[in-house]
């Protein structure tokens, strides 16, 4: 279905604030059991969360490495303090590949190879080319991007890779203000890390009772999980090299297995989608952005697109 190399599955950075031991055990299990090529560590949302995981960082890196996983360390989406800048410098000095989510990180890396994360706006080929010239080895496109735009970005990206999120809640905004704290009548400076109470985020509904958003500290995400299983083959046809699953508080090993099976034609997208429902419970799914619709929309895959054959999917994405 695609002339390029085997599709790479990646596990995006954990966006939620889990207790450090749970986070460590999660990555140990990923190392031991998960069908994933690359794992992103690091904190994207809030620097106040960072110290808790630090004691386990090296052990997690070692375990993932021993399992043959590539490692990337993600960095903050909104950098405002000198302490946060110093932290990025320190991460860069560890010699691990970084994912830049704020332009600050691009500047601190000074041309060293890196991944451009989804929080840096790469909406067009002009920006892509400039950043590849600055050392971007791979570009994770913004969640808002449609298939038509991804096609343009992917077409001329080589030798850089292009990564698209295909599972998990989509990050819609980042702020200085902590809405998690605000929901508890606290402020960011005295937050008591209440974001840790919600390992899959805090539901925010409309006033007429429709769950619509998820709050995660200073970050706001979609309520539904983005699920692009029937679209995997089409994304490969567009030239996407890496497919990102963003960790949620569900059995991610099983989720990764389903995606890998579809990519390897061991399972049809329809079967995988059905199996995924049993893993994710009653969380709604979204795929609107890829289909150039409102992000919260879910287009049920027509029967033809749920087969393992890529042709129908590619045609649907080309529209």
């Amino acid at each position: 279905m695609n002339g390029g190399a085997r599709a790479q599955l990646t596990l995006g950075p954990l966006l939620f604030h889990w207790p450090a031991e749970r986070r460590r055990d999660f990555y140990f299990r990923i190392a031991d059991e998960a069908a994933v090529d690359t794992v992103y560590l690091g904190e994207v949302v809030c620097s106040k969360r960072e110290p808790s995981f630090e004691p386990f960082f090296d052990a997690v890196v070692a375990r993932l490495r021993a399992a043959g996983k590539d490692i990337v360390v993600s960095t903050l989406a909104l950098v405002t303090s000198r302490r946060e800048v110093a932290r990025i410098r320190e991460l860069a000095a560890r010699g691990l590949l970084l994912e830049a989510n704020d332009v600050a990180t691009l500047q601190l890396l000074a041309g060293a190879p890196h991944v451009v994360g989804p929080h840096i706006n790469v909406f067009n080929e002009g920006t892509r080319d400039f950043l590849v010239g600055c050392g971007a080895r791979r570009i994770v496109v913004p969640v808002e991007m449609s298939a038509a735009s991804i096609r343009v970005i992917a077409a001329g990206a080589a030798p850089a890779g292009v990564e698209v999120q295909v599972f998990g809640r989509q990050a819609l905004s980042v702020a200085m203000r902590c809405y998690h704290a605000r929901s508890h009548n606290l402020t960011k400076d005295h937050c008591q890390l209440v974001c840790g109470l919600d390992p899959d985020g805090l539901a925010a509904s409309t006033i007429d009772g429709r769950p619509i958003l998820t709050i995660n500290g200073t970050q706001t995400l979609s309520r539904g999980y983005c699920v692009l299983l029937p679209e995997l083959a089409g994304l490969r046809e567009l030239g996407v090299t890496h497919l990102r699953l963003s960790p949620q508080a569900v059995d991610m090993v099983q989720v990764l297995r389903l995606y890998r099976d579809v990519l390897d034609d061991r399972r049809s997208a329809a079967e995988a989608l059905q199996a995924l429902r049993t893993v994710t419970g009653d969380i709604p799914y979204v795929n609107g952005f890829l289909h150039a619709r409102e992000g919260l929309a879910w287009s049920e895959p027509p029967a033809a697109r749920t087969t393992a054959q890529g042709a129908g999917v590619g045609a649907a994405l080309r529209r």
Binding site: A77, F123, E144, S173, M176, F289, G295, A297
Partner: peptide, 21 residues
């Protein structure tokens, strides 16, 4: 504007039209 500007996809999440572009 409480959100980090130029990087907020809330409106396109609800409408499908991108403020960014």
């Amino acid at each position: 504007g409480p959100m980090s500007e130029g990087r907020c996809f809330l409106s396109s999440y609800l409408t499908g039209l991108s403020p960014t572009s």
